[in-house]
Design a binder for these strands. Sequence first.
DNA 1: ATCTACATTATAATAATTCTAAACTGTTGA
DNA 2: TCAACAGTTTAGAATTATTATAATGTAGAT
Lengths: 142, 142
Amino acid sequence: MVKNRNFIEKLRELGLRPTKQRVKMCEVLFNREKTFHFTINDLVKMISEEMNEKISLATVYNTVHALEKKGYLKEISINSDKSYFDTNTSVHHHFYDEDTQELIDCDGNDIDPINIKKNITGKKINSVEVLVKVASDNQNQK
Amino acid sequence: MVKNRNFIEKLRELGLRPTKQRVKMCEVLFNREKTFHFTINDLVKMISEEMNEKISLATVYNTVHALEKKGYLKEISINSDKSYFDTNTSVHHHFYDEDTQELIDCDGNDIDPINIKKNITGKKINSVEVLVKVASDNQNQK
DNA sequence: ATCTACATTATAATAATTCTAAACTGTTGA
DNA sequence: TCAACAGTTTAGAATTATTATAATGTAGAT
């Protein structure tokens, strides 16, 4: 209950009207110990279950993109066939398990800072992301 | 002409029957000074123009995937909305210009080797790729 | 030249995402 | 408190990228 109130405030601050769908989405996304990765479909399922009623796909897309634009979610590109999002918006890298299609966060100690020596005139660096693809040891590479 | 012959041999070595569509695709992809990046749609257009006749989308998809599986093309994930391929199959990283949606190769000197300190038991690393997103200096981040 | 297996093609099917237009609901202010 | 407006939600249609299908075509062996 108190948590709902927090999300209502948060959404207001972001200029997003706190509808029940958005508040529920925030609970599902941010009301947890650890950050996590999800696809839009994952999220629709989770919210529908928590609310005991359907939520429109379009609403989930809209709100996810709104939260992404505000910096509360980050999109992660792995394959072109699915979009993954991450509630951990800090700069960090990922392992991707090609066997299980699971994303795993790297923390700061897993990979040394990346040193970019090239710079493109007139452009500034927005992000630097490392993706490490792993697979079972006794299996051919993709 | 001589070049065609080369591609015919190459395709045979790969176990791919050298049809005229595949030979033309190889010319378009590999018969050039520098490696380059393309989407499936780019490629369909390029081949259709070079051949002065249509080529089926399905054929392009099939052959691109065949060449990818054989290691002559590499897929690059940037956004989920498009698949980019690269004729440069060596290990290298990319800049992505968010303004122009252009991909730019990094060569070995642009980024120091990435040191991965984490390892996941029973899994081996298949690839380590860095994507540096850049955008115009006087513009908000995506 | 003929045959056969593999390729190509147009088209249909699927999947992810975005659009649309009508119905609904926070919020503001009288 | 409540009417009114602007922003939201929704179902379903539209769009886009990709894959599947099944009929036709063709490379390569005999």
